[in-house]
Amino acid sequence: MTGIRVLTGDRPTGPLHIGHYFGSLRNRVRLQRQGAELFVVIADYQVLTDRDVAENLPEYVEELLLDYLAVGIDPAASTIFTHSHVASLNQLLLPLLSLVSVAELRRNPTVKEEIAASRQARVSGLMFTYPVHQAADILFCGADVVPVGRDQLPHLELTRLLARRFNERYGQLFTEPEPLLGEAPALLGVDGRKMSKSRGNAIALGAGEYETANLIRRAKTDSERMITYEPERRPEVASLVLLAALCQDRRPEDVAEEVGDGGAGRLKAVVTEALNEHLRPIRARRADLARDRGELRRILREGHKRANAVADRTLDAVRDRMGMTYL
């Protein structure tokens, strides 16, 4: 991965949870350790895609930054930035919008799903065009690789299409990024539904050990005493077994066999111990980092500085290709 640039990020809509950690954050740290250069966007503007008001942004941005640093993302070897503080990135949205039709935006399956689940009283233009905004995120920094799930492939394909169209119309500039497909572990929330910040069914990375134990204690299981790993037939039990296995770097089948006929109570005890032990050093680092808010602001300022330098160069190159250099 040495020399490869990777774009990834999150919306600041609340605390990151263990689903984010096992599904994405650990992979980011692994990529960085393999020599990749990370650009991590805290997508504050995109909070407004599916809600009318972006609430608690200063707190949520700081919490995201704490989580990134606590899990091991190195700010000296990565660029962590917010949308709202990189003007040239957002200006790049305008020429990219000229390269895509309304019909193509309407056909994007992920946009259709997001609109259906939107919290807004009406669909905003930002919701409709946010795949192009994501394309600007990726193209401004010249990302070679973007870690995505299969449901995000339409967004990345649009990014590749926009890069291709710009290059064909104005001359070669943008690299067409490649997807880095990953299968996020199928961890359910404690209520048996998809783990989500908005549903209140997740275990936050920053949660204490007592809170974690309480959440796992009320996790949904089933009435069978013998613990097995059968994701299709017993999804709630399988999710807990998988969580313990991820924490202990074991096969879920081995965890299930060890718990055996100990039932849901024994399983939850194993999961609680495994998760708290795994997260203990991360939570300790997080607590240490939280004591110096000035350092957090310094890291974010430095990320903004680096991101702005890259975005300004990219926008200058775009203007040059488009014949918009007048001074």
Rank of each mutant, 00 (worst) to 15 (best):
residue 323 G to M: 07
residue 93 L to V: 11
residue 186 A to Y: 13
residue 49 T to V: 10
residue 214 N to S: 13
residue 153 L to C: 02
residue 302 E to I: 07
residue 64 L to I: 11
residue 308 N to T: 14
residue 202 A to C: 09
residue 170 Y to V: 00
residue 226 M to P: 02
residue 179 P to R: 02
residue 313 R to T: 10
residue 244 A to I: 05
residue 51 R to G: 05
residue 199 R to Y: 14
residue 251 R to Y: 14
residue 164 R to P: 04
residue 217 R to E: 13
residue 309 A to H: 06
residue 128 F to V: 14
residue 255 V to F: 12
residue 138 I to T: 07
residue 326 Y to D: 09
residue 4 I to L: 00
residue 134 Q to W: 13
residue 78 S to E: 02
residue 222 D to S: 12
residue 284 A to Y: 07
residue 112 K to H: 08
residue 174 F to D: 05
residue 204 A to G: 05
residue 134 Q to H: 13
residue 168 E to I: 00
residue 49 T to R: 00
residue 190 V to I: 14
residue 10 D to T: 10
residue 83 H to M: 15
residue 196 S to T: 06
residue 90 N to L: 12
residue 125 G to N: 02
residue 271 V to T: 04
residue 44 D to A: 04
residue 176 E to D: 04
residue 223 S to I: 01
residue 243 L to C: 15
residue 15 P to D: 11
residue 105 L to I: 00
residue 235 P to M: 07
residue 215 L to D: 05
residue 231 P to R: 08
residue 86 V to G: 02
residue 255 V to K: 14
residue 141 C to Q: 09
residue 213 A to T: 04
residue 21 Y to V: 07
residue 266 R to S: 15
residue 205 L to A: 03
residue 229 Y to E: 06
residue 107 R to F: 14
residue 122 R to K: 12
residue 323 G to H: 14
residue 111 V to C: 05
residue 307 A to I: 08
residue 151 D to P: 12
residue 113 E to T: 14
residue 150 R to H: 12
residue 127 M to D: 07
residue 312 D to C: 03
residue 185 P to N: 10
residue 291 R to A: 10
residue 262 G to M: 03
residue 134 Q to I: 08
residue 282 I to T: 13
residue 66 L to S: 07
residue 176 E to C: 06
residue 280 R to N: 10
residue 164 R to V: 09
residue 262 G to E: 01
residue 262 G to A: 07
residue 172 Q to E: 12
residue 318 V to W: 03
residue 203 I to Q: 12
residue 222 D to H: 04
residue 40 V to W: 05
residue 184 A to V: 13
residue 15 P to N: 05
residue 124 S to W: 13
residue 179 P to C: 11
residue 182 G to K: 14
residue 58 P to K: 06
residue 154 P to V: 13
residue 110 T to W: 00
residue 107 R to V: 11
residue 290 A to P: 01
residue 195 M to E: 06
residue 86 V to A: 08
residue 294 G to R: 02
